[in-house]
Amino acid sequence: MRREAALNAAILVALIAVPAWAHLSDEPFTITLATRAVILALAAVGLNIALGIGGMVSFGHAVYFGIGGYAMGILASHAQSYTPMELFGLSIEGTKSMLVIWLVAVVLSALAALVIGLLSLRTSGVYFIMITLAFGQMFFFFSISWAAYGGEDGLSIYVRNGFPGLNTLVPIQYFGLCLAILLVVLWFNARLARSPFGLALNAARQSPARAETVGLNPMRLRLVAFVISGAITGLAGALFADLNRFVSPTMFSWQLSGEITVLIIIGGVGRLMGPVAGAVVFVALEHLLGGLTEFWHIYLGAALLLVVLFARGGLVGLIAGRPGGGGGGHG
């Protein structure tokens, strides 16, 4: 445990030090990369609540990422064109305020997770993986043909949305904002894992039958975890859209669901900082290998294989050793 704590601290220090160095030496693109890693980490932290603690292997978390992204894209595009959105007779104004957008993103993705969770949690194992994938594909194909918001072309937002007191277009400021959110969510996550709810959820994952005999309702526990998980990933989607100032159906694609899952497995399933370590390594690999060769996917694939075959518990597990207590394990 002490080694894991030290490792966690090291990851956090690196997350702050690298962009700070980049800012001082005028390398704004490194900050952009770091922001990307932080946002992907946030999405993965969200998924990790369902996957790591709850044991629910969702292969459709792109749904919530995409909903968050489109919440940003749709609201900001209406604000950009000064035309309110007509919805069931209601006229809704667009907005360029990040706070409002985040709220909408979180609420909508939580709602979607509630509905999808209610329907999907009747199944388990591979069937659960596949039904969540099915919902992801539905959203993907819908967004491609949704002409009102760009279809496959997606939506471009020319100026990043605003946050009180910050100039979000300055890379280091936007990075700071995203990092702050990640830290808050990590803190929440750590509390959650140790709360009675988290312990009950963990128990329900390890032995549903035993959990039931002590009066817990595994189904309800999982559903709540799934909704929290979807909401966090939705928030990450809104941030990601703002980073790129662009949303498109690729945010709903199964490849993206796969990528978020990959981040967690690289880092370590169920580890607090696993998703963060995974995201940092993944973004770095993507950037460095992409610069080396056109066929960099081969090396990425080989690296992933090595992690699965030889680094049980992901990178965090490899460095910090076996988890002490409840945090780790496999779904």
Partner: peptide, 20 residues
Amino acid sequence: KDHLDQVLATFALILIFSEG
């Protein structure tokens, strides 16, 4: 190994096979 590891490992194989 569990399904999750299988998914990741065979996903890695897709990358290797496709680009190969």
